[in-house]
């Protein structure tokens, strides 16, 4: 029997899974006084089935569409009991955030409950075999888009810019120290916080398991993933993308982009550039 960690070691997540690393890093910062909840997703592996669990803290297994609603309930109950030092952490994937859980998320943010919502984006419904989600990048091969996805992915960070979040940030497993700093910042806020983390998936993105962190680093460097945070109506860009021309290198290191043609590659690069230019413009403004 191992020592009781905040997240157990003997977990049956895939080899090289970044989701487990995110859970570990988040709880290292938040500490044992946390209540967590997971929707049915890969993160439900940590919550476990039967009488087993992987969390060393109280956890709730919610339904897929209403994790933020559960979080608001737990948060309000703690408020009534006067337990202000207990944190609430929602831990969902991209399907439970972008598609199915979006209305509950927007509702919870609007009501302003104190909770930290971590979205671990692996760009498809990986737990059910890798079907497309609205977070999937254009051109990516998934089980339901065998010839490559035709639509551009949903930009949830820009969608949530107009919501009264106390703290909003994007992070990546490629820079785990930056992620820990952002979780620590969110833990101090008295309101809804949203952290969007990139989490490469070795089985769905089809790359060797040892490349998980390397691919996340490539995405940051090439500008496919932007690191920024919004606090007190001000956007701060944490790291400038070094080189947009490195995007093809990022794309070709994954087998899911093997059917990509030059036209789509150009489209992806142009989209990444526009996203960064928009963010630059937004960072000059005073938002609310």
């Amino acid at each position: 029997m191992p020592e009781l960690d905040l997240v157990s070691k003997g977990m049956t997540t895939c080899q090289g899974c970044a989701m487990e690393l995110i859970a570990r890093a988040a709880l290292e910062v938040l500490g044992p006084k946390t209540i967590t909840m997971t929707p049915p997703s890969c993160s439900a592996i940590i919550t476990g089935n039967g009488d087993e669990t992987g969390w060393g803290i109280p956890c709730v297994q919610t339904v897929l569409m209403s994790l933020p609603a559960f979080a608001s309930g737990v948060s309000e109950a703690l408020k009534i009991q006067g337990k202000n030092d207990v944190k609430v952490m929602g831990y969902a994937g991209d399907g439970g955030t972008f598609d199915i859980g979006f209305q509950a998320l927007s509702g919870a943010i609007e009501r302003g409950h104190k909770a930290i919502y971590i979205c671990c984006n692996n760009e498809a419904y990986m737990n059910t075999g890798g079907q497309r989600s609205s977070a999937t990048t254009i051109g990516a091969t998934t089980k339901t888009t065998p010839t490559g996805k035709k639509e551009v992915s949903k930009n949830i960070d820009f969608m949530l810019l107009h919501t009264p979040l106390a703290y909003q940030a994007t992070a990546s497993v490629g820079d785990i120290r930056d992620f820990k700093r952002k979780v620590a910042k969110a833990a101090e806020k008295d309101g809804p916080c949203f952290i969007h983390v990139m989490s490469p998936c070795p089985s769905g993105w089809k790359y060797p398991t040892d490349q998980t962190i390397a691919i996340a680093k490539k995405a940051i460097r090439s500008g496919m993933w932007l690191l920024w945070e919004r606090e007190n109506g001000k956007i701060t860009i944490n790291r400038k993308p070094a080189d947009f021309d490195a995007i093809p290198e990022y794309l070709h290191s994954q087998k899911r982009f093997s059917r990509l043609d030059d036209e789509t590659t150009e489209k992806i690069i142009a989209e990444a550039r526009t996203r960064y230019q928009t963010l630059l413009k937004l960072s000059e403004l005073e938002l609310n």
Partner: peptide, 27 residues
């Protein structure tokens, strides 16, 4: 820091890997 399973620890001044739980991802 980057081990997803958290099996590497610093004990007695050196890094030790717990092979009971190491999945061998190679990160």
């Amino acid at each position: 820091e980057y081990c997803p399973c958290g099996v590497i620890e610093k004990t007695e001044g050196k890094m030790v890997i717990d092979y009971t739980y190491c999945k061998g991802c190679g990160i």
